[in-house]
Nucleic acid binder design. Structure first.
Lengths: 145, 145
DNA sequence: GGCCTTTCTTGATTTATTCAAGAAAACTTG
DNA sequence: CAAGTTTTCTTGAATAAATCAAGAAAGGCC
């Protein structure tokens, strides 16, 4: 089984290896930036009986363990990706909501130094670039004439 | 009335001046980073009969007009602030959700240049710093013993 | 292999937000 | 300043994502 890789990741993170978790981890790897509903769909292709709650629980456990990352641009539902620990960011299309990965702008965690941190101890700088994707830029918006 | 300022802002933005809108605009000015429910509460202190839908509509109209800004950190409901057009960012406490303003890190829109923009035309870079606020850092988390 | 803990299933619930229809109010024009 | 047109507000229902809860099932350890 190709799943052995994912099982291994779970064990390494001291998480119990269960069918739903392996499937969720595989689904997030296969579909970057997928929302919960998509993950549920992908999981059920291989394992029809898995409950949505199991997926929610798995996503939460995997996120807490750092195996996946949760992102949630304004106005969107929660989405997940398997690319973690490399300080990359995201571009989000205002038109269609499409998300693409963007490597950190100036190299090594450039934004992590806030000018005045108000006494907060900061551990992460999350950057979301907002704009328009090529497709949405190409097609003129369908206005009611 | 001190509301004249806000009425003026609405007119300048070509928005109709209505009681709910003036009250919402004032509420967002008075309570930065307030969520919708708080805004509804603040509005109703002066105008008890205003419906929640009117507040939702007003917030949307004001946001579209650029008079207020909507922010929504992961896991939070929508929040609004009246400080617009100055490219400032936010620190969010992982413990209590508290939000504070942060001026742009390196000066003039430093993060606006993505390394590889995937063909997107980017118009805004939103930065959210995640960390722990002084209060939450001070009190050791209440664990179940 | 048995036991204890964690996780999954089932099903209901909450909460933020949106949708819809008619009434009311705001700007415009004569 | 009064009538008309359009927008916005009120009322009330609906939707969608996520969470809560109780018992059943499965995982890992001895």
């Amino acid at each position: 089984m190709a799943d052995t890789v994912h099982e291994q990741m779970l064990r390494t993170a001291s998480l119990r290896v269960t069918r739903p978790r392996v499937a969720v981890l595989a689904a997030v790897h296969a579909h970057p930036h997928a929302d919960t509903e998509s993950v549920i769909g992908a999981v059920r292709e291989g394992h029809p009986g898995v409950s949505h709650q199991a997926v929610y629980d798995s996503l939460h456990a995997l996120t807490t363990a750092g195996l996946i990352r949760r992102i949630q641009p304004s106005g969107s539902v929660a989405r997940y990706e398997a690319r973690v620990g490399d300080n990359h960011h995201h571009v989000v299309c205002r038109g269609c909501g499409r998300i693409a990965d963007v490597d950190c702008a100036v190299g090594e965690a450039p934004c992590l130094t806030a000018h005045d941190d108000h006494g907060f101890s900061i551990d992460e700088a999350e950057v979301i670039y907002w704009g328009t994707c090529p497709d949405c830029a190409a097609e003129p918006v369908h206005e009611l004439s």
